[in-house]
């Protein structure tokens, strides 16, 4: 089943933000791994810490946010404490990144040929013309029609879906082994979203690239991911194979989350509703962070924080298990 050594291993990661009113823990002691070629979905509501986790892995945490503890290892090698220059070489070559808004991840002043060639030549010994040929190959691979005509276009000349394809081409430019995709389809229309997901899945299968797919859309996860981690208030509530988490959600939060998504073909008068909202980082309760909203809360939840432990096919952090 699991490879002897995972591609990415995250252990007890903590991310904190020092503020005038004290230090906020945005990601609080989370551990997970990604195997080679595997797609790990990370879901959660805004503020759950899922994007920060992705940013920490590629070394792009915005200051004053910082890694306060734990380790991130790529192929067994620690990458969370590397100096900037070394991390810059890993970023792009070993770990690619795709962000939500394709317009902000491309430089509007440069033709996409220049952006692609620059990325390719940063990571591989290639002449400019070789790199240009490779850029063309990449654009073809991500399904841009008439790629040779579009190579010298500026980002604004592309539609949203096409721009996201260019971003995917950039992320794949150096054949990374892991891609961090942070809400890659959120800014796109549904019919385009489907194209991008299919493309991402196919490319990763072809290249054996592992993906950490950060999204708030359970549907996208269901179709794409092998395993899924559900985050809540900076912690992992539940992590396991996608079928187990979606069909037999154990954690009351995951369970509520699933019920709150309207399902076509299953008419209900009322959606399951989780009352309240995720706590602000300043107001995370003692014990289990979900306890104020949990329908099954009991004494222990109020005082002790649950750790991830096996339940069914998944690992769940809940005192019920």
């Amino acid at each position: 089943m699991a490879a002897p050594q995972p591609l990415l291993q995250v252990d007890n990661l903590r991310i904190e933000f020092p503020t005038r009113r004290g230090t906020l823990l945005a990601v609080d002691d989370i551990s997970f791994h990604i195997d080679p070629g595997e797609v790990l979905g990370v879901v959660g509501e805004s503020g759950a810490g899922k994007s920060l986790t992705g940013a920490a892995i590629i070394g792009l945490l915005d200051p004053p946010g910082r890694i306060a503890g734990g380790q991130i290892r790529l192929d067994g090698r620690r990458i969370d404490n590397l100096p900037y220059e070394q991390m810059r070489r890993i970023r792009g070559k070993e770990i690619g990144a795709i962000f939500q808004d394709p317009l902000t991840s491309l430089n509007p002043l440069y033709k996409i040929s220049r952006q692609l060639v620059e990325t390719i030549r940063t990571h591989a010994e290639m002449s400019p013309s070789q790199a240009r040929a490779r850029a063309l190959e990449l654009l073809d691979a991500v399904g841009i029609p008439a790629a040779s005509d579009r190579l010298d276009a500026y980002p604004h000349e592309f539609s949203g879906g096409m721009r996201q394809r260019v971003v995917i081409a950039l992320a794949l430019a150096a054949n990374p082994r892991l891609i961090i995709a942070d809400e890659p389809t959120t800014a796109l229309d549904v019919s385009i979203q489907a194209q991008i997901i299919a493309l991402l899945k196919q490319l990763c299968r072809d290249h054996g690239t592992a993906v950490m797919l950060v999204t708030h859309d359970m549907g996208v996860i269901a179709e794409t991911a092998d395993r899924v981690a559900v985050m809540y208030a900076g912690r992992i509530a539940e992590i396991g194979p996608v079928a187990a988490v979606i069909k037999q959600a154990r954690h009351p939060y995951t369970h509520g989350l699933m019920g709150s998504i309207p399902a076509i073909g299953h008419p209900v008068e009322q959606l399951t509703q989780i009352d309240g909202a995720m706590p602000r980082l300043t107001e995370i309760p003692k014990g289990c962070a979900f306890n104020p909203r949990c329908p099954e809360v009991f004494d222990k939840c109020l005082s002790h924080r649950p750790d991830l432990r096996p339940a069914g096919g998944s690992d769940v952090s809940c005192w019920l298990f």
């Binding site: 019919s191 997901i197 269901a222 179709e223 079928a243």
Partner: peptide, 18 residues
């Protein structure tokens, strides 16, 4: 094209064009 929770790991035939 809407992602469906009932169909896990579905392979889709995305419709081309925008």
């Amino acid at each position: 094209t809407i992602p469906d929770l009932d169909v896990i790991g579905r392979r889709r035939e995305p419709l081309a064009g925008e």
